[in-house]
Design a protein around this nucleic acid. Structure first.
Lengths: 228, 228
DNA sequence: GTGCGCAAGATTGTATACAATCATGTGTGC
DNA sequence: GCACACATGATTGTATACAATCTTGCGCAC
């Protein structure tokens, strides 16, 4: 197997590349991430790969098992609930702050994001659309000028993508963009109250679209299923 | 210099050990954390030390500068505000959840924590008292049964300790334990409303006890001061 | 005497080599 | 034929060696 790109990969950029692949569902939950394999793929040594995998494990996107390797995380039903509870605490109030600090330039960024998502959906690039949909939320935290909270939300968004991969119920993804449009309107009006409430409902809708009953989790490999 | 302990150090345990040292102000902000130095101190190779330092940098407790090394982080005034804004979003509602789920065993844990803090203060172990004071908040998240939020709060608490090291204004630390006592009472009554409100006020008091005006930050070395 | 440039030392960044651990398959005994 | 034990292979955990980068001090030119 040849290397992926001609680039000066660092542990951070490899981690970002892997995170995006996970976020876009190109690397589904439970995928084995062998160090040698990744090292060959990126054309780097295991040292750098290990640093990237450890970084992702701190973001709960990768699960490290001692002497067994790294796997794309498989959030449990419980973890899924927790992630959305954390988002419910952080995002509505952050959306309010963003609305209050909104600028025209920031509005353009959010509009461009929504348009890109539409374009990706039209091109049947569902993974990319999902990624952009998440970026919308991260952008809001950035506009709210809360770097610390943005870091948390960014992690929660990526984990949400894994949760969606495992527990998504509905087929129609269009309701999503509708909520983002409504938020955009509230932002355009600098309406903090509406933004907070819309974000709250948006998150509730997201959870409602998941199947979080305590059913057996899908496992890609038999071994994984039995070790649980 | 001889090794610290006879123990099988792993990157995680080294990171935990360093985090506690930072939390207890035994390693003040801007302290240089040389890899060779730490490797010798713990009796391990640089590989493991590096993994620990990277882990701490992901928690924003250590700042890594390319080709220059690792330093105990020095949160800026802005970062300090952000940390407490994040805590304000997470902790009050978490305290409410904890109150609603409180058990007698959990109450005992919290009581023991407060007693230990008193004992530490009496023994003039201020660092240990500060650590225990932070653990009180982490325990609450654990009692609320929110692992994800607990992780975030744990990080924010450690960062708060750095913030206190840099920006603490008042001398009297006794007001602290008073707030924890009040919270304990609310928990004992399973009074979610009070717990949420008390936590909110407690965090406001904490911020008020800091000097977050935009003054020049104290720097331990001249070089650090100039590079900023 | 001051300022620039270069070289030496120190420290981190990366790769490679070795050790430890786990998974798997085979063989032997019952 | 089944179960347990051991050996083999594969993969991760750790240490060491080398390369790259930055700091620092000296020396030379002006």
């Amino acid at each position: 197997m040849d290397t992926i790109k001609t680039q000066q990969w660092t542990s951070d950029s490899v981690a970002a590349d892997l995170e995006r692949a996970i976020h876009e569902h190109r690397l589904p939950p439970a995928t084995k991430l062998g160090e040698d394999e990744l090292g060959d793929a990126y054309g780097i040594s295991r040292t750098t790969v290990r640093a990237a995998l450890h970084a992702l494990s701190h973001r709960h996107l990768v699960e490290l098992r001692r002497n067994r390797g790294a796997f794309v995380a498989q959030p449990s039903v419980r973890e899924a609930r927790e992630v959305f509870e954390a988002r419910a605490l952080l995002e509505p109030r952050t959306a309010r702050s963003a609305a209050e600090r909104m600028t025209d330039a920031a509005l353009d960024l959010l509009r461009a994001n929504i348009e890109d998502e539409h374009a990706a959906l039209d091109a049947n690039e569902n993974g990319r659309a999902l990624f952009l949909s998440g970026q919308f939320h991260v952008e809001i935290a950035r506009i709210a000028d809360q770097t610390t909270i943005e870091t948390f939300i960014s992690e929660l968004i990526s984990r949400s993508s894994l949760i969606i991969a495992l527990y998504w119920r509905r087929r129609a993804a269009l309701c999503e963009t509708q909520a983002h449009h409504a938020l955009l309107d509230a932002f355009a009006r600098r309406d903090g109250d509406s933004a907070e409430q819309l974000m709250k409902n948006h998150l509730l809708d997201l959870v409602a679209s998941l199947d979080l009953r305590n059913v057996a989790q899908p496992a890609t490999s038999l071994r994984e299923a039995l070790n649980r």
